[in-house]
Design a protein around this nucleic acid. Structure first.
Length: 289
DNA sequence: CCTACCACCTGTAAGC
DNA sequence: TGCTTACAGGTGGTAG
């Protein structure tokens, strides 16, 4: 599923193929695709017609186009969302939720989403607490660890003041953004910490280790997933990347840990799964579930 | 204010 | 074979 590296790969493709063009029409094919937009669906379509696309930006798992007049087209891919650029004449697949054409008559942009957890909206830009201009509805999303605005000391302080488990904290997009279930497990494996470790007991050196693991995992995945895509295809699909990416813990229940040989275990966690190595990520005494 | 949990979706796969 | 159930999981809203 798209986490930071996948969304950044998409953003890069959009910067190449959409930025600098002017929207001609926006059509919502499934009303669920546009949510949280104060203008509503019809307002969304009307607001986008004729608007220039100036830049493509990202924070965590959100990405947006900056238009004119301090307005943005904001997107979240959810679990299965894709933004595809291609020949405007190609047939519409059944999962296309919204379609954008451009004044130059060139390739169109399609928001495709099987599970419909993703969504789009227009929004005004505002200044987030860290000083960056972002769309208003995501002002509460913290900087991601690959952003210049990310402040490790601020993160460390807020993390250790929390009363929860380290994995819950890493998934909290208002504390640190861009990390999802897969990269949280991978980063914690790398740092040698159990997912239920209480945040308030983390030593400063352990917080540094977690941060190094997170940035390492994310940037390596970005390098691996950020390669090949064809000229007119914006690769949004995290899934293909997963197979090529070497995962050390996620999805490997029952397989030997590459570091110590213990068998990776799967635990139920927040109605989903956590994978960890019982050997090098021992469960803390006062685990926080 | 903070933390925990669920609804929202649909396609695939495993279980009976 | 065909039906049922589990699972994948990010986020906003809400309950406590």
């Amino acid at each position: 599923m798209p986490e930071l590296p996948e969304v950044e790969t998409v953003r890069d493709g959009l910067a190449r193929h959409v930025v600098g063009r002017t929207v001609e029409t926006a059509r919502i094919l499934n009303p669920r695709a546009v949510r949280r937009d104060v203008k509503g669906g019809p307002g969304f379509e009307a607001a986008l017609a004729g608007r220039p696309v100036k830049t493509a930006e990202r924070r965590g798992k959100y990405l947006w186009f900056v238009l004119d007049d301090d307005e943005a087209l904001l997107a979240h891919l959810g679990m299965s969302g894709q933004l595809l650029v291609g020949d405007a004449e190609r047939p519409l697949s059944s999962h296309v939720r919204a379609r954008f054409t451009f004044a130059d008559g060139g390739p169109d942009l399609r928001f495709t989403d099987q599970r419909t957890f993703g969504h789009l909206m227009t929004a005004s830009l505002t200044v987030a607490p860290d000083g960056r201009e972002v769309p208003g509805p995501i002002a509460h999303i913290a900087p991601d660890p690959l952003e210049e605005a990310f402040n490790p000391d601020l993160f460390s302080g807020r993390l250790r003041r929390k009363r929860t488990g380290i994995k819950r904290a890493l998934l909290d997009q208002s504390l640190i953004s861009g990390i999802g279930n897969i990269y949280a497990d991978e980063a914690l494996w790398r740092a040698g910490l159990h997912w239920a470790r209480p945040t308030e007991t983390l030593r400063p050196s352990e917080v540094i280790r977690v941060l190094e693991a997170v940035t390492g995992v994310l940037s390596e995945a970005l390098r691996a997933g950020g390669t090949s895509f064809d000229a007119l295809y914006v690769n949004v699909n995290g899934e293909s990347g997963y197979f090529e990416r070497s995962l050390n813990a996620y999805g490997r229940a029952g397989e030997p840990c590459g570091r110590c040989g213990s068998l990776i275990r799967r635990d139920a966690f927040m109605n989903r799964s956590s994978y960890c190595c019982p050997g090098c990520q021992p469960r803390p005494r006062n685990a926080h579930f």
